[in-house]
């Protein structure tokens, strides 16, 4: 049985980012910097999930591209709306 070191590493990273985001939501009134930071972490979390949990890293190219585009597009909208 292979150890699941990589998966556990992903889990700890995702939990760490979530706690950081929760801390931002609790402690800071939103600013452009907070919004950009949160958007980037959402992008990173989403890409980690589709690559490691969904195992799309080696999946069909179009499917992988579509899922990655989704995860890049929506957090990018958060950044765009920050400057509106």
């Amino acid at each position: 049985m292979k150890p699941f070191g990589k998966m556990e590493y992903c889990w700890w990273t995702l939990i760490g980012i979530t706690l950081f985001n929760t801390f931002l939501g609790e402690q800071f009134s939103s600013s452009a910097l907070v919004s950009i930071l949160v958007a980037l972490t959402v992008m990173f979390k989403g890409l980690m999930i589709i690559d490691h949990f969904m195992e799309l890293r080696h999946a069909h190219r179009y499917l992988r591209l579509m899922m990655r585009a989704y995860l890049i597009f929506f957090p990018s909208l958060i950044i765009v709306t920050t400057f509106l």
């Binding site: 009134s29 959402v42 989403g46 999930i49 969904m54």
Partner: peptide, 21 residues
Amino acid sequence: CYWHMVDLVWIIIFPLLYVIN
């Protein structure tokens, strides 16, 4: 994969509703 999709959607919804204002 369906379950990961449910998780993925919440990851976007959470900051949108709770963190960013």
